[in-house]
Simulated assay, not measured.
Amino acid sequence: MKKRSIAELRQLFASEKITEHLLESLRKDERKGVQQLIRGYLRKQQKLQEAEKMFVAMSHYEHEGYLQQYKWIAGVDEAGRGPLAGPVVAAAVILPRDFKLLGLTDSKKLTRQERLTFFEIIKQQAISYGISMISNKEIDEINIFQATKQAMYNAINQLNPRPNYVLLDAIRLEKLPYPTRSIIKGDQKSISIAAASILAKVTRDKWMEKLDKDYPQYAFSSHMGYGTKQHIKLLNEHGATPYHRKSYAPVQAAIRRSIGGDTCANT
């Protein structure tokens, strides 16, 4: 039988129409290109198996809730507690019971493109989701912890249907009228919380990217408002914008430096 060309085999592997019988026969093909295709295929299969295993593990709390007869299980998470500028954003999401998105995990562990792709998939497939944003001014008024909780309450209240069980990432919401479970590192242990973390982070990142266009001298798109060395340097050079959190020490220090000068940015 005539051997298939490397180009033909490459197309076959790309189509993922590889049977065990074909794979076994190709193992006997001594061509270097064929063996490279096999190794690449096996690596990909191993990654898929690992992703499947991780997704099953991260579905544990949801399955536990279903066994307790909870139908609408919501995951809740936030983005932006630490930055010196911009809002804090919380998201709540109820996923279908048969939802599957391999690679879903804590938003911080994903690339920007992965987050954007997952963001659209989650919005399209979710039974319901809510996103809430609390401004830097309100953060200064009530403190970041209370602002985060308020954003979470707001996001949950947007859900329709209402949840009857809520999974939270390492925080407690005492005012909810239904059972909750607070999970340490929940965005790495629950698919619902991970999905919420992506909705929150992408929403906040998009907001900061828009702010970057109004204040290009602060390079918000590169640090998203977090207190990096670059951000601190630019904050001290240009003063605080109306979107900086004035209750945060580095911002207070920059404001003190700008008093009597002209380095405080305006809208």
Results as ranks from 00 to 15, higher is better:
Ala147Glu: 01
Tyr66Leu: 15
Asp169Ile: 09
Leu104Pro: 03
Ile6Val: 09
Ala147Met: 01
Lys28Ala: 10
Leu211Val: 05
Ile193Asp: 00
Gly225Met: 04
Glu52Lys: 09
Asp187Ile: 04
Ala249Asp: 00
Ser128Cys: 00
Asn143Pro: 06
Glu174Leu: 08
Ile183Cys: 05
Arg115Gln: 00
Thr111Gln: 03
Ser128Ile: 01
Gln188Tyr: 07
Arg257Tyr: 00
Ala90Glu: 01
Val202Phe: 11
Ser128Asn: 00
Arg204Leu: 15
Ile38Ser: 06
Tyr243Asn: 07
Gln36His: 03
Ala126Phe: 07
Arg10Gly: 08
Asn143Ile: 10
Asn157Met: 05
Arg245Lys: 09
Ile142Ser: 13
Tyr61Ile: 05
Gln68Ile: 05
Lys137Gly: 02
Leu173Ala: 01
Lys32Phe: 04
Met224Ile: 03
Val34Gly: 00
Ile38Trp: 10
Ala90Gln: 05
Asp98Pro: 08
Leu26Asp: 05
Ala14Trp: 02
Gln252Val: 15
Arg256Gly: 12
Leu234Tyr: 11
Tyr153Glu: 01
Gly260Arg: 02
Trp72Gly: 12
Thr203Leu: 13
Glu16Arg: 12
Phe55Arg: 09
Phe118Glu: 00
Arg181Pro: 03
Asn157Pro: 03
Tyr70Gly: 13
Glu62Pro: 10
Thr203Tyr: 13
Val93Lys: 01
Ser59Trp: 09
Lys233Ser: 14
Asn157His: 08
Arg97Trp: 13
Asn143Trp: 10
Ser107Ala: 11
Gly186Gln: 00
Ile193Leu: 03
Gln46Gly: 11
